[in-house]
Nucleic acid binder design. Structure first.
Length: 106
DNA sequence: ATTTTGACTTAAG
DNA sequence: GCTTAAGCCAAAA
């Protein structure tokens, strides 16, 4: 395994369950760099495995949809998330309901 | 090797 | 609630 920061981010993004979304900061933290949210965005923008990279399930820390350069951009992203069962609150994702909680053994 | 930019986050006013 | 500033990481020029 490469075990690189990049690889970790890719794996985590790939493990986001359907109907849920993760934030850049969350992925960064899970990958070992809690402040590399910016780099995460770049990894998504330059993702080498787009078909295996559900980057549309990754949103900003406030649930705001950012980036996405496919279809109609954020519009397509929103539609995809809605189709997966993610709840929206206006133009943002309702993180209170659709935020991915890894190992949610609370 | 250095500088700039970017799909970010948090804090402060 | 909105704007400004600073911090941090990685890729591209």
């Amino acid at each position: 395994m490469e075990s690189s920061f990049k690889e970790q981010v890719y794996q985590l993004t790939r493990q986001i369950p359907l109907g849920k979304v993760a934030t850049y900061g969350q992925l960064a933290k899970l990958a070992g760099h809690p402040k590399a949210a910016r780099a995460i965005g770049m990894f998504m923008a330059t993702n080498p495995d787009a078909p295996h990279m559900p980057c549309h399930r990754v949103v900003a820390g406030d649930g705001q949809l950012t980036g996405y350069s496919a279809g109609d951009g954020l519009a397509t992203k929103k539609v995809m998330l809605l189709g997966e069962g993610v709840e929206f609150k206006g133009a943002k994702v309702d993180l209170s309901r659709s935020l991915w909680q890894p190992a949610s053994g609370i």
